[in-house]
Write a protein that binds this DNA or RNA. Structure first.
Lengths: 228, 228
DNA sequence: CTGTGGAGGATTGTTGAACAATTCTTCAAG
DNA sequence: CTTGAAGAATTGTTCAACAATCCTCCACAG
């Protein structure tokens, strides 16, 4: 039996159908993380269906994914809302991050090359964005940097489970009043962390721990006023 | 207007405080974790719809939840199958558990009374079940014990993120050939862990680490032969 | 002016049906 | 025994409809 290369291209098209609800989820996820859909926004099914040109069932399947990622909240018979981080939730987020990230930089086994590369890339992007004063991008890169730290574990499940944590952290950044003062300080500290890790400094765990405590305190204070 | 207490009970049944799809998901989740639906079982939509008396759309929304929890797998145009744990996945599960559980017993701050109570309860249930040789219940209680350890963190998010880990661990137990030999050994070690933790022994972290490495090795070996 | 209550509209929850696409089953022909 | 194709079974996706619930508005009594 011979294989016709032309048929392979044809077969590629129906693959999109599987991704339909996933594509919708990706679009919404991007809008929420980018800040176009701000925390607290109500997501009305009919409007989104016509805007995205999909059926309600497909949209609701996409909602299911976003719910699992905790990017949106569900109120029975009232629908979906973009999640609004609360101060006590921020404290919980950073408690999780301290557990996972501090353990990641401590473990000597398994270098986790993927995570290290992610850290370097994220740092470069952040510095570049900071020069243009694109604080949105700086915040995103900061999260990517710390996701890279968690990825040092080299665990598929751990990365998967941390995704909601990063999402919520990103959301918390959106409800901050002054992103400049916040992010610029931590850019330098990220660089220091990377250098110490590559140097094999054993004090890095304590350093990262303090870093996360500081960030938690500042972020909690910054989102306090927004109490809707 | 007076309130008739008798009518409140009647009104409770038709009053669904949760969506039907999540109720369906709960039923399926229970069946899978309990072992009624064994790993590899194909979940045919039409059969489940008639059995649960719900529509396909509702059932598929429930499927979406179970997919996110990785209790079931999806094959394009072939449907849903109860997830079958693979050896490399088991290794990843225990890598996550070592990070979270070892950190939980180490931290001196915040006693985490809820988690401690969960550990005690789970241990009592496990011992009771072991006497009747109900190894299904012993396995479930073992997982509840370790979930209690993770709950020592007192973090809502961490508990939430660990839920899929416990689910997958429970699934892995189901594909073991000899549950007796496996669980009976770890029952005693669970008791030892609890005692050391309550005594404040600092060596508990290393002890728990070794425990988890042993369990990983044994479990991996036990599920190896089942390669479908 | 306040707030109480209800009518009506808007939105979500759920169902059933329909059709296309794909996979599985069966069975005859080589 | 293998191959191949027709038919059945199952899934992927969309649509329309109805019930249940929530929200808005307004009349009306105090």
């Amino acid at each position: 039996m011979t294989i016709d290369p032309g048929r392979l291209d044809e077969a590629r098209l129906p693959l999109r159908r599987t991704a339909l609800s996933s594509q919708v989820a990706a679009v919404l996820r991007g809008s929420i993380l980018h800040g176009d859909l701000r925390p607290g926004t109500r997501l009305i099914e009919a409007d989104l269906c016509s805007a995205l040109a999909v059926s309600r069932n497909t949209l609701r399947e996409a909602f299911r994914s976003l719910l699992e990622e905790q990017l949106i909240d569900h109120a029975l018979n009232r629908g979906m809302f973009v999640h609004t981080p609360r101060p006590e939730e921020v404290a919980d987020l950073y408690r999780c991050r301290r557990v996972v990230e501090c353990a990641a930089v401590r473990r000597s086994e398994a270098p986790g090359e993927v995570g290290l590369a992610a850290m370097r890339d994220a740092l470069a992007i952040a510095e570049q964005a900071a020069e243009v004063e694109d604080w949105l991008a700086v915040g995103t890169a900061d999260i990517a940097f710390h996701a890279g730290i968690a990825a040092l574990h080299g665990s598929y499940h751990l990365d998967r489970l941390m995704a909601p944590i990063w999402n919520q952290t990103r959301l918390a950044f959106h409800v901050m009043d002054d992103p400049l003062r916040f992010h610029s300080a931590y850019l330098k500290r990220n660089l220091a962390i990377l250098n110490r890790f590559e140097a094999g400094d054993p004090g890095i765990e304590r350093m990262l721990h303090d870093y996360l405590c500081d960030a938690e305190r500042e972020l909690t204070a910054a989102i306090q006023p927004l109490d809707d």
